[in-house]
Simulated assay, not measured.
Amino acid sequence: MIGHMGPLSERDHHRLAEFIDQAAGIQLPAHKRSLIESRLRKRLMVTGKDSFHQYLDWALMDSSEQVMLIDVLTTNKTDFFRESNHFSFLTEYLSQRLQNASLRRSHYRFWSAGCSTGEEPYTLAMVLENLKRDYPGFQYSIEATDIAPSVLDTARRGVYSHDLVQPISMVDRKRYLLRKKTRQVDLVKIAPELRHHIRFAPFNLITGNFSSMGEFDGIFCRNVMIYFSPAQREQIIEQFAAALSAGGLFFIGHSEGLSGRQFGFDSPMPTVYQKISS
Rank of each mutant, 00 (worst) to 15 (best):
G3K: 10
G6S: 11
E10T: 12
I20M: 12
A23R: 13
A24I: 03
G25C: 12
I26Q: 09
I26F: 11
I26T: 10
Q27S: 15
P29V: 11
R33F: 00
R33K: 15
R33S: 07
S38N: 15
L40G: 03
R41E: 14
R43P: 12
M45V: 15
Q54A: 15
L56W: 06
A59C: 11
A59S: 13
D62Y: 05
E65S: 12
V67I: 15
M68Y: 09
I70L: 12
N76E: 13
F81K: 02
F81Q: 03
L90I: 14
T91Q: 13
E92K: 09
Y93P: 01
L103K: 14
H107M: 08
Y108A: 04
R109F: 09
F110W: 02
S112V: 05
C115H: 04
S116E: 09
E120L: 08
E120T: 07
E120V: 09
Y122L: 09
L124E: 02
A125V: 08
N130K: 12
Y135L: 10
P136E: 02
F138K: 05
Q139C: 14
Q139N: 14
A144P: 02
I147R: 08
A148M: 05
R156I: 11
R157I: 10
V159N: 07
S161A: 13
L164Q: 10
Y176I: 06
R179V: 09
R179G: 00
R183H: 11
D186Q: 13
E193N: 05
F200Q: 08
F200K: 05
F203K: 07
G208C: 10
S211E: 14
M213R: 15
I219K: 06
M225V: 11
I226R: 10
Y227S: 04
F228D: 01
S229F: 01
A231V: 12
A231E: 15
R233K: 14
Q235L: 07
A241K: 02
A241F: 05
A246W: 08
G247Q: 07
L249M: 15
F251R: 00
G253M: 04
G253A: 06
S255N: 04
G257E: 03
L258W: 04
G260M: 02
R261H: 05
G264K: 05
T271P: 01
V272D: 01
Y273W: 01
Y273Q: 04
